[in-house]
Simulated assay, not measured.
Amino acid sequence: MTLQRITRPVLFAIALFAGQAHAQGSAPVAVEGAWARASVQGQKATGAFMRLTAKDGARLVRVETPAAGVAEVHEMKMEGDVMKMRAVPGLDLPAGKTVELKPGGYHVMLMDLKAPLAKGSSVPVTLVFQDAKGTESQLPLQLPVATQAPGAAATDMGHGAAHGQKH
């Protein structure tokens, strides 16, 4: 295959993978399966999801992005027979254990979106971690924007409905 025959989406995927692999080389936390849910015109919030594994244990203390006015880690859980969502001040990442941020559980909320997140684009997100000594480290990522998790069945509609998204 010659370089002229490589399409833009393929180049984007290669650049995205290379960027994440490079960013994680010295990072205390590995990130897998990261993505952000696409939004539509007028929609002011969406979610981002991923799997985080801290080598020595850490805490996700902050999320930053220029794409939204507010970025927070949220938790969804049942209280009685009501599903509730709330911001959490941080998310513990026990050493060597994978913590999944997914629809219906812990996730990143991107609120007060500056513009819609279009399917097939990417959104810059920086995760800020704190180790046991209180030292902060940042992990910049480019999250691919999609309507569902890579490889997910089309029936996962739970998270979008909780945030008023149309599918």
Rank of each mutant, 00 (worst) to 15 (best):
M1I: 09
T2D: 13
Q4H: 10
I6T: 11
P9W: 00
P9L: 00
F12S: 08
F12K: 13
L16E: 14
F17M: 11
F17N: 11
G19S: 14
A21V: 14
A23S: 15
Q24R: 08
Q24A: 14
Q24L: 10
Q24E: 14
S26L: 13
P28C: 04
P28N: 10
V31D: 00
G33I: 08
G33D: 12
A34H: 02
W35M: 06
R37V: 07
A38W: 02
A38D: 03
A38C: 07
A38T: 06
Q41L: 12
Q41S: 15
Q43H: 07
Q43K: 03
Q43E: 14
T46I: 13
T46Q: 03
G47Q: 09
G47R: 05
L52N: 02
L52C: 02
A54L: 00
D56M: 01
R59S: 15
L60E: 07
V61C: 04
V63P: 05
V63C: 11
T65N: 05
T65E: 02
P66R: 09
P66S: 13
A67G: 03
A68C: 05
G69D: 00
G69P: 09
G69W: 04
A71V: 12
A71L: 08
E72P: 01
E72A: 15
V73Y: 02
H74K: 12
E75N: 13
E75M: 13
M76L: 11
E79S: 11
D81V: 02
D81Y: 12
M83C: 07
K84I: 15
M85Y: 01
A87N: 10
P89W: 07
G90C: 08
G90H: 13
L91Y: 10
D92P: 14
L93H: 05
A95N: 11
A95T: 09
K97E: 15
K97G: 06
V99H: 07
E100Y: 07
G104I: 07
Y106I: 01
M109Y: 03
D112L: 08
L113P: 00
K114N: 10
K114W: 01
A115V: 11
A115T: 13
K119F: 09
G120T: 02
G120M: 01
S121V: 05
S121D: 14
V123R: 06
T126I: 00
L127K: 02
F129W: 04
D131H: 07
S137F: 01
S137A: 11
P140L: 00
L141W: 03
L143V: 01
A149K: 12
A149M: 05
A154V: 11
T155M: 06
T155S: 15
D156Q: 10
M157E: 11
A162T: 15
H163I: 15
H163G: 07
G164E: 02
Q165R: 14
H167V: 04
